[in-house]
Nucleic acid binder design. Structure first.
Length: 257
DNA sequence: TGTGGTGACACATACTATAA
DNA sequence: TTATAGTATGTGTCACCACA
């Protein structure tokens, strides 16, 4: 601690630190220069919100003010540092969450791709127009506005049957000459198609339900994260500071004096 | 009028890169 | 290896503002 100029016999001035750390109620010791006017010993201490400092000399007042400002500055810096640390931690957490979501997105895309390929393969086995149906599934909205312009030559057997308003079997019979020879083959194929359609419908409903579950889980995670972040921001709790005083290594009052 | 918060400034110290 | 300049960080102080 730097010695004050002309301080032959320093004395202590105790300052209650009510504002910097109200809960701690710390008391800071100030070394006053010798010869300063002492406060009246045993004087009655009326309950005041703002204490009168008339018993202090201007020099003591300045020193007291200086010390209080020193403590306030240190507290402000500690809070600032804590805020920065918290923000940095938040950055790390958000980056981790972003990586998780990216990975999840990648997995879902791969799953969609494999399901699409599987769907294509099944349609190939059925002898349906794969390219046409893929286009239909990808841009259904655009295609719906152009259905009449496409004509009757393109499309799957089901859509052709709907457009021609003729039985599906008739359309399929026209498209596949093998089915005209045997009625039971026709019926078997029809049953198979119906079974596959029902499977496809079940699969669609199931995948949509799974995807909605993922969305709900993500919404829960997002809401919980928002809640945590809001809770973190509203009440700022300064870190528990140890008593700042001469016992610390950084205690260098009147460094520039 | 006392008090706390904060930006700005000056200073001290530790650390690092670089040339001799 | 050593001296030195540059940089980062911490600290004290002052000035200013808002509040009670």
């Amino acid at each position: 601690m730097a010695a004050l100029p002309g301080a032959a016999a320093p004395r202590l001035l105790l300052i209650p630190g009510e504002a910097a750390e109200p809960a701690a109620g710390r008391r800071l010791s100030v070394v006053l220069p010798a010869g300063a006017a002492p406060s009246p010993p045993g004087a009655p201490q009326p309950a005041r919100k703002r204490q009168r400092l008339t018993h202090l000399s201007p020099e003591e007042k300045a020193l007291r003010r200086k010390l209080k400002n020193r403590v306030a500055a240190q507290s402000a810096r500690d809070r600032k540092k804590a805020r920065m640390t918290e923000l940095e931690q938040q950055v790390v957490e958000l980056e981790e969450e972003n990586q998780k979501l990216l990975l999840e997105n990648q997995l879902l895309r791969e799953k969609t791709c494999s399901l699409s390929l599987e769907n294509q393969e099944l349609r190939c086995r059925l002898g349906l127009d794969v390219l046409k149906t893929e286009k239909e599934s990808e841009s259904k909205v655009v295609m719906e506005s152009q259905v009449d312009e496409i004509g009757l030559v393109t499309g799957s057997a089901e859509s052709a049957a709907l457009r021609l308003r003729v039985p599906l079997q008739q359309v399929q019979a026209q498209q596949s000459p093998f089915l005209t020879n045997s009625t039971w083959i026709l019926m078997a194929v029809t049953l198979q198609i119906l079974s596959l359609i029902s499977c496809w419908a079940f699969w669609t409903v199931w995948t949509q339900r799974c995807f909605s579950n993922v969305l709900i889980q993500n919404q829960h995670a997002w809401k919980s994260w928002r809640k945590r972040s809001v809770e973190k921001q509203i009440p700022y709790r300064p870190p528990p500071l140890p008593l700042w005083g001469p016992h610390q290594l950084s205690w260098r009052p009147l460094m520039n004096s």
